[in-house]
Amino acid sequence: MKFLASFLILTMLTITNSITAQNQNTATKTITVTVVNATSDTGKIGFALYTKDNFMRKPIQGKEGKIKNGKSTVVFENVPSGEYAITCYHDKNNNDRMDFSKNRMPLEDYGASNNVMAFAPPTFENAKFLLKDKNLELDIKF
Rank of each mutant, 00 (worst) to 15 (best):
V75Q: 08
R104N: 15
N54P: 02
K52H: 10
P59S: 09
N54T: 04
N93T: 11
S72Q: 01
K52W: 05
A120F: 14
G82A: 03
D96N: 14
V35W: 06
Y50D: 01
I45M: 08
M105N: 11
T73H: 03
D41V: 06
V74C: 00
Y110R: 08
T51C: 02
T73C: 03
M105P: 03
F119T: 13
P59F: 07
K58W: 03
V36P: 04
N115I: 13
D96A: 13
F76Q: 00
K71M: 10
P59C: 07
D109F: 09
L131H: 12
F55P: 00
N103G: 08
D91V: 05
N37P: 11
K63R: 14
T34P: 05
V35C: 09
H90S: 08
F76N: 04
D96F: 12
S113Y: 00
F124H: 06
D41R: 08
K66M: 08
L131Y: 12
T51L: 00
I60W: 05
F100N: 12
M105R: 11
T42K: 14
S101R: 11
T34N: 09
K68D: 10
Y89L: 01
K68C: 02
V79A: 12
A120C: 14
P121A: 15
Y50G: 04
G43D: 03
G46Y: 02
